[in-house]
Amino acid sequence: MALLQLRDVNKHFGGLHVTNAVNLVLEQGEIHCLIGPNGAGKSTLFRLILGEHHPSSGQISFAGEDITALKSFARIRRGLSVKFQVPGVFKGLSVRQNLEIALQSRLSGAALAKEIDRLLAFLNLDAEQAQMAGNLSHGQKQWLEIGMAIALKPRLLLLDEPTAGMSPEETHMTGEMVRRLNAAGMTVLAIEHDMAFVRQVAQRVTVLHLGQVFAQGSIDEIVADERVAAIYLGQAHA
């Protein structure tokens, strides 16, 4: 069953055609990676899905419902959640409070405290719970924001470059986190430049280039595709 479906989605910024007739179907339960060169329009596509931008034309539906005209918070409440490219944690608040704010619409009292503890352990942030989120390392901020995103128990988790700034070990750990979430039933759409991560998690890969869907397939098909190598992976491996 399709969880998310984009039909002929276009987005213009003035004369700039950033998203060009994108058609994309995300199946319930898959981990799907979105790759492509810098400026391909990947983050913009996320913003369209989240309702931060509205498409110039086209339609977006989620779980069978047309959400094209919905406000962002309403889309979140229907089961979307996101980790931004630039970590959007609440810098002046403690790590614990960051998670509390994400969880409090679902839980309260002792159940809330327990779920925060569970998430802290899942994110390897036990020791940092009293710290200001702004003082975390870049990788820890990424984890904290992933934690806030999954605290909502979303049906679809959007991750924009979740491993940027992480060491190879941390990247691998993040991959394992994503796989565990997926095993528990969460559908994931991740933008990534790190091909080791993509290989670790992706069941399907879509390549975006100049705002268009350039190629789609399994990771092996994509890596073997010479056209993709020419526009993106060639440079990435160089």
Partner: peptide, 14 residues
């Protein structure tokens, strides 16, 4: 306070 710290993030928590 979440809105003060980061309104976009607050909205994206629903």
């Amino acid at each position: 306070v979440a809105i003060r710290e980061n309104p976009e993030r607050a909205e994206m928590l629903g």
